[in-house]
Write a protein that binds this DNA or RNA. Structure first.
Length: 117
DNA sequence: ATGCTGACTATGT
DNA sequence: TACATAGCCAGCA
């Protein structure tokens, strides 16, 4: 019985999003649009946010590594505070305005870690 | 079925 | 740099 509403989509859009988010290395962040692109869903940045919002509590998906294009946490409430704490814990620094310098911390998709060349 | 809202982004002013 | 507008898609009343 499919209790979890996600991971049971016809096309598996949520699943793709989750997979894309999982690819984000620790200490790095990605934007919703970027995730959508990695998940093969270009232009559907909103779905990225939706899919993450639907994530069950205690999920293995590092949802905290996903921020908006401005490098700021889009979500408000306690989840936002939680996200910021988790990111800082991974070594990510925030500006005085509460924003992350994407030029330094944004994950470059397609760029393999060190796999030689 | 229709309309509004939302963890968004790109572009223009 | 900040605000406004248009485009996109899924969930919910």
């Amino acid at each position: 019985m499919p209790s979890t509403s996600n991971e049971n989509r016809p096309d598996g859009t949520h699943r793709r999003i989750h997979d894309a988010v999982r690819r984000i290395p620790r200490g790095r962040v990605a934007t919703y649009g970027q995730i959508a692109r990695v998940a093969r869903l270009p232009g559907q940045a909103r779905l990225g946010g939706y899919a993450l919002h639907a994530l069950p509590r205690g999920s293995t998906v590092p949802w905290q590594r996903v921020v908006n294009a401005r490098g700021e946490i889009s979500v408000g409430g306690e989840s936002g505070v939680r996200q910021r704490q988790l990111l800082e814990r991974e070594g990510i620094r925030f500006d005085p305005r509460g924003r992350i310098p994407l030029t330094k911390f944004q994950w470059r998709a397609g760029s393999a870690p060190h796999k030689k060349k």
